[in-house]
Amino acid sequence: MHAIFFILAALTITGASAAMCLRNLIHCVLALTLGFVGLALLYLFLGAQFVSFTQILVYVGAVAILAVFAIMMTRSAGPHPQPALSSFWITGCITALATFAVLAWAIIHSNIITPTPAQPAVSTNQIGDALMHSFALPLEIMGLLLTAALIGAVIIAMPQNRSSK
């Protein structure tokens, strides 16, 4: 195991757990951005450059900004008098801990015997080639899904009184 892996893993886990634990929602989203950057660096470390840059573009660039906008538009930033956790938080924590225990037990007790292959060299050229040839149908379906999501999000978020006049 590499030291870089442990540093990046600590960065990611710190960002993710801070995003789920902090009380101020803006701080939560900033911590989440840290976790996403850590994940992008892990992808870079694994040799998937294109996925790493996509992660930064989509998650750090779009999803985090979208979440900040939603927090500001719903006026849920700032300190709250009521508790941040729901009433059944103990059950939720126990469920998450049990899930992690089962997953970790299964991972540790499975004997993975594949030898570590050499770092594969993947160029963006190859990814574009695969997207245009063997993965052309999923690409088209993805375009349809994104169009439907775009129209649906705009219609859902549009004010209701526009249709009544």
Binding site: M20, A84, S86, W89, G92, A96
Partner: peptide
């Protein structure tokens, strides 16, 4: 690492009160 990340996300989705 990935299962720990999944559990953190699951704990957040199950325990937080804010929908965002």
């Amino acid at each position: 690492l990935s299962s720990l990340l999944f559990s953190i996300g699951l704990a957040g989705a199950l325990t937080r009160r804010n929908a965002i």
